[in-house]
Design a protein around this nucleic acid. Sequence first.
DNA 1: ATGATGACGTGCG
DNA 2: GCGCACGCCATCA
Length: 111
Amino acid sequence: MKKTPSEFSLSVFRQIKRVRRGKVATYGQIARLAGNHRGARAVAWLLHSSSRVRGLPWQRIVSAQGKISFPWGTDGFTRQRRRLMSEGVEVGERGEINLAAYLWKPSRKKT
DNA sequence: ATGATGACGTGCG
DNA sequence: GCGCACGCCATCA
């Protein structure tokens, strides 16, 4: 890694790594924790761009709609769904996930 | 620096 | 619930 990743990117990766097994987080949530509540797209971009990076639980990142972002039928979709289910997350045939039960709760104690 | 892209989010019909 | 349009951000050509 010669290029210096932006702090935003580092923050994003950091938040993702904090997600415990069996839980999922949304792009918007990660983006918000990273400092940019509107950087959901950037998060997504970083993920698909850094998907080659190991140790990054990218599979735990889903859309705010509670569904796998990958288009159904794609390799990425199948792979992510399989990994999530392997972690104990119930994923519908269409990649539907019950965020109310599996959404990761950041222990962000502030104030 | 400009234009285009992407595993998104929200609002509206 | 679904599809479309606009907005937002970081990275690539």
